[in-house]
Design a protein around this nucleic acid. Structure first.
Lengths: 340, 340
DNA sequence: CTGAAAGCGCTTACAG
DNA sequence: CTGAAAGCGCTTACAG
């Protein structure tokens, strides 16, 4: 099938390419008669402007780049959902890439996206990202950038996050209010900001409630997996460590712990209470159902895209951009893995 | 930051744009000396060819379009994972869209992707897709198309699928071999091919094992949700319907049923066996763990992309394309929701 | 109201 | 080995 071009329409109608282009874009300086003729023929031929040419002229791709650590992940897939849905409504398409928690891949992907000349970039950083020069490169390149969820405070750009410290504080307070006195924390890796913040929220909740912080009760999940939750639960059980509550960095880790305790007959929540983080669908269907902190993925995706679009529009007009940080609310979802 | 162009490099070096372009593409007819000078300067200036211009000239976008019914879904997110990982390795980026099981949206998205002039399109059809003219449009447009998982047999293009009939046959045979005599089927909607095929596999397994097919034991899940699994389990229980095994169209539906039976104290698998389909991660962590059919999402994504790339290459050379259908193997994963 | 012309930044067939 | 020129298909400032 031959592609229809402006030239074709122009020559069939015996008018200039300029006039055809203007007619299709509804410029005021085209006679209604000409306009009508052009539009009719264009419709008939199913004319669609060649986006390659339009891109080249307008210097816009109408494409957003998105980099996340992992796609097969309830929270992140919810974020993607929010992003691409909103983007589509606003006339943008989204290229998604997965860093697989690799800093090296993430940097390569940033280059790919800049090379494609996407109009803006959304990133949730990998856990291992330390070198910020690539993020700075995006900014120097004048490509609008919004970080979400896994952010880095040192980068000067807009951000969409939850208040991880506050959310963790609520989670641990919930355990304390339900009677827990010795609370362990299965924390995330040492580098990412949100794993640091959740840890700090845990610590603060303990101290505000006059419980002593015991660093031997903090277990670090390097990869934030089911297996690690299982492993640390086993450690606590077999070494007879005195713990009556666990705050896990994420539902997956919590479910690993629950699975172990069930296997060995430790009663949840009677003997030990467990609270997770994120509110994956899974949390509601396991036994016992998991008390957790709801983290609004879909909403986060939508906000991040909205913010990015605003910056794209401002940057097109060469307006000064004031970076914003949006903090979305979270809440504890009470289920059966903690006492009421 | 000013973008570096061929023109700039050419004028700094006092040579022509043509020569610069050739040097960078390592054409043989450029002197080593010139080549060296060009490459060095280009490196120094971090030159990257403007992809808009390249696209316009080469008529290639190096972008693949992907449409799936739902992103927040273990199976589909695994497929996406396979697709974008493989694509990236092969020098392609992927635009993902979600049809939300809406035929109308799906058609709009096909138009969007064709408008963007993607090099190829991958689709897993929505459950409600009946009008095939849009798929035909892709083919008429000479844009390579590969359907996967949710396909339509009437479309003449390459496909990647599992043998749903065979897989369902194995699932139901597994129930029969473990002693079930009255097996219900929580089937999917009436339109999609794979829900039809799974139903046919169910029927065939019954008849091959001399069990009579009873259509009152077939329950149709319109939306294939947890809630529907729950609802039909409740119906069976409260109406005292004589059933000792259930084959559910997907793990989510199976888990809905398990959840209900657990609430009312029906023992699984002693009183009723349940087998799901897909092998979501969730299936391994609920209680009892769910016997299911493993459906290789990641692999399917990879194969579909590979096939598409082959067609893209062939079509660039105007070669005749022989469409292929790849059938990936599945297997029953025995867990605790069925008797051993 | 219409259109000739320049230009976006590249690639490539062709001439020298 | 080098480069002038055409062209990909559009947009838009400008002249008439």
């Amino acid at each position: 099938m031959k592609e229809v071009t402006l030239k074709q329409i122009a020559s069939t109608l015996g008018i200039s390419i300029t006039t055809v282009s203007k007619a299709l874009k509804n410029y005021p300086d085209v006679s209604p008669k000409t306009k009508k003729a052009v539009i009719e023929l264009a419709d008939k031929l199913h004319f669609k402007p060649n986006s390659f040419a339009v891109n080249l002229r307008t210097k816009e791709s109408k494409i957003i780049g998105l980099i996340i650590p992992e796609i097969v992940h309830h929270f992140f897939s919810s974020v993607i959902n929010g992003i691409i849905e909103k983007a589509e409504k606003e006339g943008y398409l989204v290229i998604t890439l997965q860093s697989n928690e690799s800093e090296e891949l993430e940097q390569k992907q940033i280059d790919l996206l800049l090379g494609k000349r996407v109009d803006g970039i959304l990133i949730s950083l990998s856990n291992n990202t330390k070198n910020l020069s690539y993020l700075q490169k995006i900014i120097d390149h004048k490509t609008p950038l919004v970080l979400f969820d896994k952010i880095n405070k040192l980068i000067d750009c807009s951000k969409v996050i939850i208040d991880d410290r506050e959310a963790a504080y609520s989670a641990v307070s919930h355990l304390i209010n339900s009677g827990c006195k010795k609370i362990a924390h299965f924390r995330g890796p040492l580098n990412p900001q949100n794993s640091i913040d959740r840890f700090l929220g845990y610590k603060k909740a303990l101290s505000d409630n006059n419980l002593t912080f015991d660093k031997s009760l903090v277990y670090t999940c390097e990869n934030v997996t089911f297996e690690e939750g299982y492993k640390f639960a086993k450690k606590i059980h077999t070494e007879n460590i005195d713990v009556d509550g666990i705050f896990a960095i994420t539902d997956l880790v919590a479910i690993g712990a629950i699975t172990y305790f069930k296997e060995v007959g430790v009663k949840i929540p009677e003997q030990i209470s467990i609270i997770g983080f994120s509110n994956w669908f899974m949390a509601s269907v396991i036994t016992p159902s998991l008390t957790t902190v709801d983290q609004p993925g879909y909403k986060m995706g939508k906000s991040a895209l909205k913010l990015l679009l605003k910056e794209i529009k401002a940057s097109k007009k060469n307006k000064l951009i004031k970076h914003k940080t949006i903090v979305l609310p979270t809440k504890v979802i009470q289920r059966n893995s903690t006492l009421i």
